[in-house]
Computed example of a mutant assay.
Amino acid sequence: MAARQAELVATLVAGGPLPSGFAPAPVDAARRALLRKRGGDVARHWPLLAAGLGAAWAATFADWAAGRPTNGSLRDGWDLARELRDRGTLPALGAEELAAREAVTRYDGRRAPRPRRLPAVGRAGGAVAVQLAGRVRLLRPARR
Rank of each mutant, 00 (worst) to 15 (best):
R110Y: 14
V130D: 02
R135S: 13
V42C: 03
R111P: 09
G16R: 05
V121T: 13
E96H: 03
R101L: 13
F22I: 15
D76H: 04
G52V: 08
A50H: 03
V27S: 03
G77H: 02
G72A: 05
L74N: 03
R38Y: 07
Q131K: 09
R44P: 05
L93N: 02
G67K: 02
K37N: 14
A65M: 02
R31F: 11
V130Q: 06
L132I: 14
G125I: 05
A95H: 02
G88R: 03
L90E: 00
L84Q: 00
P115Y: 08
P119C: 11
L139D: 12
R143K: 12
A25K: 10
L80F: 05
A124G: 00
G94V: 10
R38K: 06
P47T: 09
V121N: 01
A43M: 07
P113C: 12
W46H: 05
G122Q: 01
A33D: 13
R110D: 13
L139Q: 10
A25P: 06
G72R: 03
R114S: 11
M1Q: 12
A112P: 06
R101V: 14
E102N: 00
G77R: 02
P24M: 15
G134D: 04
A127R: 01
A33C: 07
R114K: 11
A58W: 06
P17H: 05
A25N: 07
A51K: 04
R101T: 14
A55R: 03
A103T: 12
Q131A: 15
A120W: 08
A56P: 02
A120N: 11
A95T: 06
R82N: 01
A58H: 06
L49S: 04
R87N: 10
P47G: 06
A59P: 04
R36Y: 09
A65P: 00
A2Y: 10
R82A: 02
D76V: 13
L35C: 06
L118C: 11
D108E: 08
E83P: 03
A30V: 13
K37R: 14
S20F: 08
R114H: 10
R36K: 11
A129D: 09
L18I: 15
G15E: 04
R4E: 13
R117S: 13
V130S: 07
A99R: 01
T70Q: 00
R116M: 07
P24D: 15
A50G: 08
A10S: 13
L132C: 12
G72I: 09
T60H: 00
V104A: 14
R143S: 13
L98T: 01
R144E: 12
A95D: 03
A112T: 12
A127K: 01
P69I: 11
L93G: 09
T11N: 11
L34I: 12
V13P: 01
A120R: 05
D28V: 15
A99N: 02
T105C: 08
D108T: 12
L118D: 15
L8T: 13
T11E: 12
P119Q: 08
V104R: 09
A55I: 06
L12K: 03
G16P: 07
D79C: 09
R111Y: 14
T70G: 06
R140L: 10
R140T: 12
F22Y: 15
A129E: 09
G134S: 06
E102W: 00
K37T: 11
A100T: 14
A30Q: 08
A14F: 06
A120M: 10
V42Y: 01
A55Y: 02
W46R: 02
G77P: 04
L74Y: 13
